[in-house]
Design a protein around this nucleic acid. Structure first.
Lengths: 271, 271
DNA sequence: TCGAATTTGTGCGTATGTATC
DNA sequence: GGATACATACGCACAAATTCG
């Protein structure tokens, strides 16, 4: 195994010859630079709110190219440790006060909006907009709703804001066969528009008994990034929710929120 | 507002002049390429498991530079849509079967390990290792445990595996004042080692009544990436859990799992 | 108030190392 | 072993946003 370019540079940088230059777990240059910047931040050299070295300063201080400085900075941004603004620089973020989105049972208050309740508790003004259209179920949506791929569904996209800052984005699907011709066919229109799934389903005699929520995370898609006001590829938490009656699913949704600005909260009793 | 470089190229590419070249929401070149590749994947042109165009093919097909092809591909990788392997190419990932980590109430079965139950349900062999040491509470841990910063705590790091693949990593803190001198001082040692928090606390007459779990997400730290076998900066889901008696917190933990390989699942009744 | 300097985000071209086929 | 393909690295340029004199 011969030394690659990055390893040769490491040798030049640190004056070490064998151990690091030939190690299999050799860290890349941009990782080394990111690690050192992270260490300097955590050591207190750059407190919260302060500016960290610019691209050019990194080039000089670490004797690396522009590409390495850019990638090292992007690592710290992805970790949520710093925030960079064009023309201004990169700044250390304070330990984030995350907006709390509670998922407790008492959210299911008759007639109230869970999101509005959460935001008002935290002193924020809630608002949302929604847009519905009918669509054909994808394989994934069909599986979750227990219907056939291609079956008609009502698809609604919601964007929720707090103090006019985007907080969460949701895409909801309901089997059109269930609600067609009823007053709740359009989730956001009609006399029952804007109410929760439980209340709307009750209108047509469907009793929702439980819900399943599965949480994972990934990089944001372009649409999500735009709606949430975050960078493309920034980390988002994904909550896949399905409402059930005793014997069938009646609604499913993908709820997406910025990973570092929000948290989904569950409080559960222990028997 | 004058057209930037990328916009000029867009004009060349699509033969359109005014609308797109001057629009404020103008998409960057790499975003356009990523969008088109995503569209082609979702249209069925590249089914799951198939190879998508190589970087060189992207250069030619879209008439863009290497840097744009690289960044467009990295967007799709971050989104979890494709996986790229050096020397092999980039391949469409099948809809991910995520390992399910259930957070339901019935997990709290006396004497059993919740993780083991989850994994056995999914046909995997569970295993874990743990390491405890006493430590001083950080500001964050002190806040969560309702103690003073610097107070002694027992800190335990767990790494859980399924079929010897790392699945989740947890760092747990207990107030040392609560367990000092009792048989449960070391979570993984003694007659009650390895049992759940509820059962261990019962041994010393402490009744756990509820727990709070807050989920967010971010890029993995270096330690987490090493323990979970993922790339540095890969996305992880973070679950902050605290166990309470009626009047005080008795344990808190940060549970971290790969964002795209696992999901935390809640099933909740609706009153 | 306006222009110059700074800084980030993006783009182009090229080269090397390493993994895979 | 050779060809292919990805990951990283270097150097350079321009546009847009911000900052500051």
């Amino acid at each position: 195994m011969t030394a690659c370019l990055c390893c040769v540079r490491v040798v030049k940088l640190f004056g070490q010859i064998e151990e690091r230059a030939l190690g299999r777990g050799m860290a890349y240059l941009y990782v080394q630079v990111a690690d050192d910047l992270r260490r300097r931040i955590q050591s207190g050299e750059f407190p919260a709110g302060s500016q960290i070295p610019t691209r050019e300063q990194i080039n000089k201080q670490y004797k690396v190219s522009a590409a390495v400085a850019i990638k090292a900075l992007s690592v710290l941004v992805t970790e949520g440790l710093v925030e960079s603004r064009p023309g201004a620089g990169a700044y250390v973020l304070p330990p984030r006060e995350r907006l709390q989105l509670s998922r407790e049972r008492h959210r299911e208050v008759r007639g109230g909006s869970p999101f509005a309740g959460d935001m008002e508790t935290q002193g924020k003004t809630p608002r949302w907009r929604a847009h519905s259209r009918s669509d054909a179920a994808t394989a994934e949506v069909a599986r979750r709703l227990g219907i056939a791929e291609g079956d008609p569904v009502m698809r609604t996209v919601y964007v929720y804001t707090a103090d006019d800052e985007p907080v969460q984005r949701a895409v909801s699907w309901e089997p059109y066969e269930l609600t067609r011709g009823t007053p709740i066919a359009f989730p956001e229109d009609g006399p029952h528009g804007g109410r929760g799934v439980r209340d709307r389903m009750a209108v047509i005699g469907v009793t929702v008994t439980h819900r399943r929520e599965a949480l994972s995370s990934r990089g944001a898609t372009v649409e999500e990034a735009r709606d949430l006001g975050i960078a493309t590829g920034a980390v988002v938490t994904v909550l896949r929710r399905t409402y059930f009656t005793d014997d069938r699913p009646v609604e499913t949704a993908d709820i997406v929120a910025a990973g570092d600005r929000t948290e989904f909260v569950y409080v559960l009793p222990i028997s």
